[in-house]
Design a binder for these strands. Structure first.
Length: 745
DNA sequence: ATGCATGAGTA
DNA sequence: ACTCATGCATA
């Protein structure tokens, strides 16, 4: 299953209330006004991966705090402590299934996730962004190991029994439903730029899954998780995870705390065995837009499911029907908890049974209707004719493809699982014909999501969802190799002409490199200019830039680079030369128009924290320096201990330096955490977003911008390093005794 | 060793 | 306004 997390990047707007509020003090958690005030000042950032950020920053720390304070971490979830965006999964890691009241609380995150709860020193630092990414976007979702939570899930086929839920508080989810990543909070701004009063929670799974935020009624549990019809995450079982809707919820504005502060029953409910089944739509001239407003579905337990939150107004002349419906809903509320919009509560048994229904008269008349459209029962005597007569009006598979319902995605019409008739309805006549027509219909539930007409032409989007697309998969969790290729490909970097020569040895072409450069050409002496088009001049440069890192010679090139860096460090130290001295010495040598290099640069070279191209360019220079140094050292021992003439120069203008000394902004830990969280969400914020971020953190915008630039740069460097290290792992070089230690790192 | 910053080149 | 190479300042 593919979750297109890279789709529609602007779809999910995330509030930073969780982050900026931060719950850095316990008191913040319980002071709604304070929280609200912070929320009001929050900024937005468009992202498709906001879930990571949310999970990371706030969700865990309270859980950890609880874990630290309250013993067994598996039982430490406390509503009063858990922030709204607390994600059970992130903190719920247990190495072994932990029995708890006879149930097991799994971690749901897989073995690659750290046991965060064991980190008790700093709950903030315990959560790394990378880990969270791993958990939410890749691991949990892709491996579908999220058999979390402990719910009193009735056995398959057992009707939804309210009792079994009301007695059991705590997080619940259906086994196959990944709850993590749903605690995304969206602030919707109206035209005047103010947050609207309703809080929309949306899934964070990206465009591949229906954007629930188009629905205006969502809810989350006391942990801030959103419970929805998440059956999209189940490939083989349609299960519905839902939760009780606090009727006041949408009135609570965006203050999530207010929502959670309400101590009424917010216990999430699961109805794990209710599957939405196709329904028969018997009217001719069915208008799909109308159908999309249907709120009635057939549930697998043989009941008619009534979707909560009937939002649309019924047509004129339907007031009576509407009132009747509302009465019915009200009466049902007493028995069944209200559910969110994408969930369905049992309303009454499905019409086709002859006993125990409100529609015992088997006719072909209206069974239920919404939006003036009629839904007729499946009178056994009519099956044949009906199917024949109305087939053309049924929703054809091709028409269904633009539905946004997951069931459809998971179950193409031709592959629909057969309806397992509950035993209570086993006396249903002509059940096989029932199958027949629902097979031809598709899924009514498939239309319940269509609220915006614009959705109707997106079949390709959903077709894609059903297909495991390798490319998309890469988008979601690109291997570092992929990233590396992107980041360091010649197309994305310095424009490099066809330098297909292999890496040059110190005694080879590289020695000609310096001499071929225009000494006054550029401050960046080796920035290649692709106006130098002919191969000869390119070759003369001798800069061993890889044009195809993953072509014929990638590993050898990378390995050579890595090995040289290690070896260089070894030999430099053996010579007793510091990094700074190397940098200065380069200025004295006739190595191109390089002036000095800084200690930083030498250090980064040795630690492989330069870009790939940068490494490749510096290598021959350092090679040359090393060569000469060792020659001098062998001919005149003690040479390297001579004073450095540049030191005096540097010291001479020390007074001036102090005056023009650059001030260095110091970014505090909390600020950094926030920035990192933002970065996880959106590594390339727009200018506006930068401004908001800066505002929120109270840093200068320029500082934030630079930070992001540096962070991106750093990320690439780290990828570079990671790649080289990995290369070393798989292609160990012949390491000598003298350099094996450094190469190990 | 690394964070924050700068400036040239570039899109 | 970004990328990239690089340096100052500092942990």
């Amino acid at each position: 299953m593919v979750l297109e997390t890279n789709q529609s990047p602007s779809k999910f707007a995330v509030t930073y209330c969780q982050l900026s509020a931060g719950f850095q003090k316990d008191s913040d958690l319980h002071e709604n006004s304070k929280f609200k005030e912070k929320c009001m000042n929050d900024t937005l950032l468009s992202t498709e991966r906001s879930v990571n950020f949310l999970n990371c920053q706030v969700a865990n720390m309270e859980g950890l705090r609880n874990a630290d304070q309250k013993g067994p971490r598996a039982s430490t979830y406390d509503i009063s402590y858990s922030g709204p965006v607390m994600t059970v999964m992130n903190v719920n890691r247990v190495d072994q299934p932990m029995p708890m009241n006879g149930r097991f609380l799994g971690d749901g995150t897989g073995s690659s996730v750290r046991n965060y709860a064991s980190v008790d020193s700093d709950p903030y630092s315990a959560i790394s962004m990378l880990d969270c990414v791993k958990m939410t976007n890749q691991h949990a979702l892709h491996s579908r190991v999220s058999t979390i939570a402990y719910s009193d899930q009735p056995a398959a086929g057992t009707p939804w029994n309210l009792e079994s839920y009301s007695s059991n508080r705590g997080p619940k989810s259906s086994p196959e439903v990944t709850v993590m990543g749903t605690n995304l909070c969206e602030l919707v701004y109206n035209d005047s730029g103010n947050p609207q009063t309703s809080l929309n929670l949306t899934t964070a799974f990206g465009g591949g899954i229906h954007d629930y935020s188009t629905e205006n009624a969502s809810t989350c549990d006391e942990y801030g998780r959103l419970y929805r019809l998440e059956s999209a995450l189940c490939e083989d079982q349609c299960r519905i995870s839902t939760s009780r809707l606090n009727s006041d919820y949408t009135q609570k504005t965006h203050n999530r705390k207010a929502c959670f502060a309400n101590t009424s029953d917010l216990t999430p409910k699961a109805c794990p065995n209710i599957t939405i089944l196709p329904w028969c739509w018997r009217d001719s001239n069915v208008q799909l837009p109308s159908l999309s407003y249907t709120r009635r579905v057939a549930l697998s337990d043989g009941y008619l499911g009534n979707q909560s939150q009937l939002l649309e107004m019924e047509e004129d002349g339907e007031e009576q029907e509407k009132m009747r419906m509302e009465e019915k809903v009200e009466s049902m509320e007493a028995s069944y908890p209200p559910t969110e919009q994408n969930a369905y509560r049992q309303l009454c048994p499905l019409p086709w049974p002859t006993n125990g229904t409100d529609y015992s008269k088997i006719t072909n008349t209206v069974v239920e209707g919404t939006n003036t459209q009629s839904m007729r029962n499946s009178s056994p005597t009519m099956i044949g004719d009906v199917c024949k007569d109305y087939e053309s009006s049924f929703c054809q598979p091709s028409q269904c493809t633009y539905s946004t319902n997951f069931h459809h995605l998971k179950y193409p019409i031709e592959n629909q699982p057969k309806c397992s008739s509950p035993s209570a309805y086993s006396n249903q006549l002509n059940f096989s014909s029932h199958e027949t027509w629902y097979h031809s219909l598709g899924l009514l539930s498939a239309f319940t999501q269509i609220l915006a007409p614009s959705h109707c032409n997106h079949s390709s989007r959903f077709e894609r969802d059903t297909t495991v697309d390798a490319a998309e998969h890469e988008n979601i969790c690109p291997t570092s190799e992929d990233q590396f290729r992107d980041d360091f490909s010649p197309l994305s970097q310095i424009k490099v002409k066809s330098h297909h020569h292999s890496f040059v040895s110190p005694s080879g072409g590289s020695s000609t490199w310096a001499g071929s450069l225009d000494m006054n050409h550029s401050v960046h002496p080796y920035r290649l200019d692709d106006k130098q088009d002919d191969d000869q001049s390119g070759s003369d440069l001798g800069v061993p830039l890889c044009t195809d890192l993953f072509g014929n010679l990638p590993d050898s090139t990378l390995e050579e680079l890595r090995h040289f860096a290690c070896m260089f460090k070894q030999r430099r130290m053996k010579l007793g030369v510091t990094q700074a001295e190397v940098g200065r010495a380069l200025g004295r040598m006739q190595l191109g128009q390089f002036g000095c290099l800084s200690q930083s640069t030498i250090c980064r070279f040795e630690s492989l924290t330069l870009s790939h191209n940068n490494m490749l360019v510096l290598k021959p220079i350092l090679e040359k320096w090393l060569e000469q140094m060792e020659m001098c050292a062998s001919s005149s021992p003690g040479y390297t201990e001579l004073g450095d003439p540049f030191d005096a120069i540097n010291q001479s203008d020390g007074v001036l330096e102090s005056e023009r000394r650059r001030r260095r902004t110091s970014i505090t830990e909390p600020e950094k955490r926030m920035l990192e969280a933002y970065f996880q969400v959106e590594p390339k914020p727009t200018s506006e977003e930068l401004g908001r971020i800066a505002n929120g953190i109270r840093l200068r915008k320029s500082v934030v911008r630079v930070w992001f630039c540096n962070q991106r740069q750093k990320q690439k460097r780290m990828q570079m390093k990671q790649h080289l290290s990995r290369g070393a792992q798989f292609h160990p070089s012949p390491i000598t005794d003298t350099n094996m230690h450094c190469c190990g790192e």
